[in-house]
Write a protein that binds this DNA or RNA. Structure first.
Lengths: 197, 197, 197, 197
DNA sequence: TATGAATGAGGATTCATTCAT
DNA sequence: TATGAATGAATCCTCATTCAT
């Protein structure tokens, strides 16, 4: 599989993302994907091994984007862990609102879909690692206190996800950001002594 | 749909739940479901309209169970909203660990899958309503403070879900319960004045 | 793959034989085979693994028939090896004229078609073994003399085949039988001393 | 079709012959042919009309070679019809051993493959005519006697073919030549009075 | 009610062929 | 002339669904 035109590959991914987000896998026809991408059906097979590979590639592309955007945002120097946190939550929510198709797809990944695909493990742990490092940095500076940063790292995108299950999305992103931050800050600034029943 | 043998219907649902949780919809063969349930392929069509109806029935059956278990637990009289909360979180986590297949299925519902099915709206709002009422009760007694109980009601199962994406499940349920409660209590017992940027 | 109706299996084989003999493999559509056999397309896959398996099954069925007919004919007690030979040649030629489709198929088998299919080796060697045993019996009685019965066993069907390449078949079977016998008898009754340049 | 580079055309034919002999027509990919010939896929269409034309061209090229080699051999003056015969059989067998791919291809031609192609009739009759003329010359000189030279002309390559169906080829060419000659001479030197039932 | 053999609509995939370069 | 990326017609095969028993 040669990849002579990266531009075309991205066009296909974008078209597929929209379709895969709007319908279950088995209702998405490759002929529709091809048409939406403005390429021939056979062209899909130049860039992707098969339908499942296309689906997974779309998925990974989404995680790549999100992680890249988060990373870019966090690379701006910030001394305050709380500001880091706010930036991260804001980035995730904005990504979700800007890429509703992609986010719906990412939200509903099932481990059985990605079982056996090596790309998955790294993508997933990249995102988790990013969030976790923010929390750990806060703990190191004494700003945060958290007995289980690895769980907290999951909770944050998990809260965003939980709200975006609803269709149509009648919650305003600012409110969502504020509420997630309210939860997270309250928990992270609690004194550790108080924690765990 | 009143059917002759409710026992058989449940056997089919249980078999289907396991298969639907372990593989994407399009890889689950009705012949496998029939075999796993110990019935003939044609029998499935006596109890369910078609494959999608079976899938949704499995899903709704899961929500029914969870809601029923929650309801039963909360019907025990408790004066303290905080105890209610603890009971609810405990129930959700225990359900997830007792019914991993079903929970995986419920975790990954996509709105496009249930679009147009009336049962969905009621199931979903039952669960959400249950959680929300607990919070509102706490607000009414002055124990809790929450500017967006409808978001919080989603956050709680959302946090549980976010952790159970991982396979294998190497987090112990007690830790998960404690951490979710830590988050929720911290946020709900914060004074409202502090909230929202 | 269950085989509940052997009758149907044979109907499919017969229909497929005609089509496979009249067109190259890749021009035979399974939908045509299904229609010709009076069954649904899916039914083919109950009885045969795939298109190639159907093709090979047709082929083997042909060899089975020919060997069975030869065997039946030779089971009639004959003391004279020459009569055995005549019977065998007659049977082969008559088979070829009675089953032109099947014979065309058998005539054009290529070893690459059957490579890796275990059924092939046994079928092929059955036919060869039958012919060879006739010759060896003649040698044993002193009626025949042949330095290479294993080659002669191939020559006989080979001569028949060589003539039936032509389309249309304007050679009368009796003439063909007589000419093959003329060749074979002349060679086999030659004194061995004369043989080999 | 006069083409610019006859050398390239022959490279393609040689590459295609090997592939067509090793696999059934529908499993031979033109991209494989192109790669094996060291040319681009589009180049094939400069030299051949389409896949089938390439296949037939390969086939006819084989017949052309064999006929040309036979003709060259027979053009050497020989008075003895028996020597002619020996030369022809030797030439055919040696060709088969020298060009196993091509011979396998020629061996398995099916009339449905060449139906409607005018080149076929002439090729086929050239070879047949050559063999037949040898026999008729022998009859004219009184050395041979044959009631059906047109059948005998087919039998000779037919016997060679019948042995080479086997894979791997464990028969030594000298033995094959000797045995074919043994058959042919025995039949042709029989007195005609004895022939035909 | 229960079954599973039969069906055929539907869709993924292949690959001969084209054509812009 | 030579190429190989792009194409989409063509077709194998799957599997949800039906229905005679």
């Amino acid at each position: 599989m040669q990849v002579p035109d990266e531009r075309k590959r991205l066009r296909i991914i974008a078209a597929a993302a929209e379709l895969f987000a709007a319908q279950p896998f088995h209702k998405v026809l490759l002929s529709d994907v091809a048409e939406a991408a403005g390429v021939g059906k056979g062209t899909l097979y130049i860039y992707f091994k098969n339908k499942e590979d296309l689906y997974l590639s779309v998925l990974y592309s989404g995680f790549d984007q999100l992680v890249a955007e988060l990373q870019r945002r966090l690379d701006q120097d910030r001394s305050d862990p709380s500001e880091y946190l706010e930036a991260a939550v804001g980035e995730i929510v904005r990504f979700a609102y800007r890429n509703p198709y992609m986010f719906e797809l990412m939200r509903t990944v099932r481990w059985c879909d990605v079982l056996g695909d090596d790309r998955w493990k790294s993508k997933r742990s990249e995102l988790k690692g990013l969030m976790e490092s923010i929390i750990r940095r806060g703990i190191a500076t004494g700003a945060f206190c958290d007995p289980h940063p690895e769980l907290t790292a999951r909770f944050i995108p998990g809260m965003v996800r939980s709200v975006l299950v609803e269709e149509p999305r009648n919650i305003d992103p600012q409110t969502l950001i504020a509420h997630v931050l309210r939860f997270t800050r309250a928990a992270l600034t609690q004194r550790c002594a108080e924690q765990d029943s």
